[in-house]
Structure formats: structure tokens, C-alpha cells
Amino acid sequence: MNKYKKITLDGLIFQNPTFMLVLGTCPTLALIKSATSAAGMGLTVIFILTLSNIIISALRKVIPNAVRIPCYIVVIATLVTFARMVLEKFLPDLYESLGAFLTLIVVNCIILGRAEAFASKHTVAEAAVDGIANGLGFTFALTLMGIICEFLGKGSIFGLKIMNFKIEMFASSAGTFLVYGLCIAVFVYVLDGFERARRVKANKLARENLLKEGA
């Protein structure tokens, strides 16, 4: 399999940071009450994750091993501060809705995790693809759960009223926790189903090949 395709699929599905690795749980649980906040947070993370992966990958041979983590933190903090400035200037509503969680991206384990586990060991192009893929995986997960929670908890999607019926629990922290857990369960169940089907298909092919060789 093409390595870029593998990196992309890993980030999006097989190593999805939210559903498979359960990383970045703090902003996830806090922001999925609203689809707009969730999508906004996801897009901000794509920007920061991609740029931090590119910069860290580019500097990987320059930064001594002993100070790599402080250097990663400085790079990530710089990008987060820059993202804050951009959002405050051009998207003040989104800036307000993200609140303190925007600043807390500095300590988001997805970003530091990808910097340490991937960007510091791969080329700039691979790191960039990894950043985009993981960011998209995170955004997809947050937006999906944001839509579910907002629809059930407020009867709206992205602020647009769909129905008057609402279950207020889903607009609370308990509801987001429940939705998060159920989404993880469904995601893992579906992936397991695909994996089982793939194994069955592979075994069937192997058996047919053996029979052919025997005949």
C-alpha cells in the first residue's frame, strides 16, 4: 500500500485520535455540545497539528534529543498563540465559543503525541500528511458527535433549528460523555466487522489457493 495512503487511513480511521486512541478527551467532552464549536476546534487543530508536524519534522535533525520536548512545546505554543490571534481578529464568535480550550490546545496530547511519535521520525511531506489526516480524523469525530449532541440536546444543527423536541441531558456534560462512549463503541464495532470480513475473505482466498495447488 502506498505509504501516504496508509498514513492517511491511519489518521482518519485505524488510528483515529478520538475514537481509537481516545486522545484529546478534555476539549472533546467540553465542546461537542455544539456542532459549530466542535467543528471550529477541529479546524483549528488541523491547522496547528499540520504546521507543528511540518516544523518539527524540518527541525528534527537540528534539535538535540535532550531538549526535544521543550522545543516541541515552544513550537506548539507559538502556533496556538498565532491561531488565537487570527481567530480573535477574524472570527471573534468562534474565538469566544472555544474559550479556554483554544489555549489548552498547547497541551493537547494529540499534537504533542504526533510530534513525538511521528513528525520527529519522518520526512516533512509524511509529517504534513500525518498532521492533516489526524486533524481531519479529530475534526470528523468532534463534528459528528457535535451534530448528535446538538440535535438531541437542542433540536438544532450548526445553530439551525430543526425541531422543537429536545432531550436536555444531551446538552449537558453527562450527555456528551454518553454520546462519546456510544460513538467509540459503534466505531470500534464497525471497524471490527470490516476486519473480520477482511480476514474471512483472506482465509477463503488462501483455502482456494491451497485447493488449486493440491489439485
Binding site: L59, V67, C71, V74, T78, E88, K89
Partner: peptide, 22 residues
């Protein structure tokens, strides 16, 4: 290495603030 990263970050943010200050 650490000082270079800090300095570069500081310069970048200073310039960015000049353009993006609310």
C-alpha cells in the same frame, strides 16, 4: 537550539501581533 527556537518564536509572534492586534 532551545534559545534559537525561543527567539524565532518570539520574533514571529511579535510581527504577527503587529498585524493581528485587536
Amino acid at each position: 537550539a532551545l534559545l534559537c527556537v525561543l527567539l524565532a518564536s518570539g520574533i514571529f509572534l511579535t510581527i504577527a501581533y503587529g498585524f493581528l492586534e485587536v
